[in-house]
Design a protein around this nucleic acid. Structure first.
Length: 585
RNA sequence: GCGCCCGUAGCUCAGCUGGAUAGAGUACCUGGCUACGAACCAGGCGGUCACACGUUCGAAUCGUGUCGGGCGCGCCA
């Protein structure tokens, strides 16, 4: 409808150019908007205001000229000039009701569009270190990423969802050491647990599972483990202490058994994260292992590629990437003086790998604490000859957690955190998914756990689900009330839908496709959530103002058809957000 | 110190590419089920859009500065 009105305006302006009223080279930027106040019609354009300067005429005069030269159509019943020169358009009931036909024709596909042009996009999100369960801070990235993936998919992108498993590096070795010490403790070999180890109780569970699987084959005496270790904090250095324990574990266990312990921790936690996310309605196409990069020499290859392009130099025994040549604050080490590659080197290799896999656009959803990495990763891409604009980084701001007015600190290492699973158990999947995704990603979010739990019944998601359930139950109970619903009869009588609440509901339904396109292009799934609240509100208002189950067969069928079209759009939208559309509540 | 994000009603948040009288939810106050689901609806109360200057027909929106909050600035991962 907007496009139609825009084309009418364009034709009118062309007519005026031909008549010599406007200069032939006058450029018009035609915008058509939905009006907020229905006294201003259904659609409005500010075109006369934007033309005022170039045409050297009073905006109201221009508006009058445009109105006088509009081609007549059945869709536009009236135009009006208001305020400083807005043109208001009143749309016929017939044209408005046509949206119901479209919804019924397309069903689950209503709202799909092709703004993505089948472009292949990879979206990587959550990617939390597999050193502990996901906590509520990860939930936001999960909800955002999953919804964005769904959104881009219906907008015509070819989407691949990926989780980058940080299964290499020191943190994983600390986890392995923690598991082993807990395993030894189960055998009665008491060793003071390092202050820098993973304290969470899940580590004990992994150790117990390991013990039932391997028996006592990994046991070593307390003396053998602790002999000659540097002191732990507070007397000594906790980092040196834990590193020494890792070395001792490797030495006593040997490479094969060390790998058994390491894998016990990694596999258990990664699988747990996977299950957790599935239950949260979040699914991936690929779980990409960081370790696979080094196994396949991809890190060396990436460094070589930078070297070949002459962006690497050696200093103090280390290899440096000259990222300052691409806008970074300082150059970055990719290989340390001890020969080990850095985490950044893995990241370069990983991003190179992504583009080598053929994705046209790569979207990274990162926590806000990673914003400092954007410049250096993009620098590396540029240095390797890849257009850095093909990498889109969306930062998700942290949820600041409160319990009442008390700030809650989250730390995986200390084991003091609220898990995503706990939140889901107490608040529910639908309410928590909706809660996260209602706020736009870059907005800071205050998350009061007490409030989230106590107010879960008031979560707006139920308002939307209720509208859906209400329609389902209305249809389901028709038979018991000696009534029926015939969609064909309804479609044949759409002109009966002339009440304000019906017009408003149909206009809201018509917005859905453009909301999808707009939200997809802006990477903003929260727009869907807000749209659905408004749609549900329109329906509830309608439902309370008018009866559906009435004797007038034509009007009854028309109203029920409008209601089921509404149900379809509610279901389509909720599906994008990973929220169920229940038939009963 | 430098960089990124943010500041809108008591609270939690929307506000499209600059557009008409800045909107929801919640809290508080009224009213509405002997008719389709009251997890609902109708109405009321509530704002110096952090502050200042600028850009222009028009600024919550764009620009500069100030104040306030979050985060980041390692041969850690």
């Amino acid at each position: 409808m907007k496009q139609l009105v825009a084309s009418l305006i364009a034709q009118s302006i062309d007519n005026l150019k031909q008549a010599g009223t406007f200069d032939a080279d006058l450029q018009a930027n035609i915008q058509v908007e939905n009006t907020r106040d229905k006294q201003h019609g259904d659609l409005a354009s500010n075109v006369a205001l934007t033309l005022a300067k170039a045409a050297r005429r009073n905006p109201r005069e221009i508006a009058q000229l445009i109105c006088d030269n509009l081609p007549a159509t059945a869709e536009v019943t009236k135009t009006d000039i208001a305020g400083p020169g807005f043109i208001n358009f009143f749309i016929s009931q017939d044209a408005t009701a046509a949206v119901i036909n479209k919804i019924i024709e397309h069903g689950n596909d209503f709202g799909k569009c092709q703004v993505g042009n089948n472009q292949s996009v990879q979206i990587e999100f959550v990617s939390a270190n597999p050193t502990g369960p996901l906590h509520v801070g990860h939930g936001r990235g999960a909800a955002y990423g999953a919804s964005l993936g769904n959104l881009l998919s219906v907008a015509g992108y070819n989407v691949q969802r990926e989780y980058y498993v940080n299964d290499a590096g020191r943190q994983m070795n600390i986890l392995a050491a923690s598991v082993w010490l807990r395993y030894l403790a189960l055998a009665g070999i008491e060793i003071t647990f390092p202050s820098n180890g993973y304290q969470g109780s899940y580590v004990k569970d992994i150790a117990a599972e390991l013990k039932t699987r391997v028996g006592n084959s990994l046991e070593h005496s307390a003396e053998a483990v602790t002999q000659g270790l540097p002191a732990d904090a507070p007397e000594g250095d906790k980092e040196a202490h834990i590193d020494a324990i890792i070395d001792r574990a490797r030495e006593l266990l040997g490479p094969d058994n060390y790998e058994v312990v390491f894998a016990a921790g990694l596999d258990s936690i990664r699988d747990d994260i996977k299950d957790d996310l599935v239950e949260f309605g979040v699914n991936y196409d690929e779980w990409f292992s960081e370790r696979s990069l080094s196994h396949n020499d991809q890190i060396e290859k990436a460094i070589k590629k930078l070297q070949d392009n002459d962006h690497i130099y050696e200093q103090e025994g280390a290899l440096w990437f000259r990222s300052t040549a691409f806008g970074d604050d300082k150059d970055r080490v990719v290989k340390r003086d001890n020969g080990q590659t850095t985490y950044f080197a893995s990241d370069i290799a990983y991003h190179l790998n992504k583009f080598e896999r053929g994705f046209e656009t790569v979207i990274n959803i990162w926590g806000a604490d990673h914003h400092g990495y954007i410049t250096r990763v993009k620098a590396a891409l540029t240095a390797m000859g890849i257009d850095a604009d093909r990498l889109v980084v969306k930062l998700v701001q942290f949820a600041i957690l409160y319990r009442g007015s008390e700030r809650v600190q989250m730390s995986t290492r200390s084991g003091s955190f609220v898990t995503l699973r706990e939140l889901r158990d107490e608040v529910g999947k639908d309410a928590s998914r909706f809660f996260y995704v209602t706020r736009k990603a870059e907005q800071h979010m205050d998350f009061d756990l007490e409030l989230a739990k106590s107010e879960s019944k008031d979560n707006p998601v139920y308002y939307i689900q209720y509208a859906h359930a209400r329609i389902c139950s209305m249809i389901a109970k028709l038979a018991t009330e000696d009534m029926s619903w015939d969609q064909e009869v309804g479609l044949a009588n759409l002109e009966r839908l002339d009440q304000d609440a019906e017009i408003a509901l149909m206009q809201q339904l018509e917005l859905y496709p453009e909301i999808i396109a707009h939200a997809a292009m802006a990477y903003e799934p929260h727009q869907i959530a807000h749209y659905l609240k408004d749609l549900a509100s329109n329906f509830h208002t309608y439902y309370n103002a008018h009866r559906m189950k009435i004797e007038d067969v034509e009007l009854r069928n028309a109203r029920l058809t409008l209601s089921t079209a509404t149900r379809q759009v509610l279901a389509n939208g909720l599906q994008l957000l990973g929220v169920d559309a229940p038939e009963k509540m």
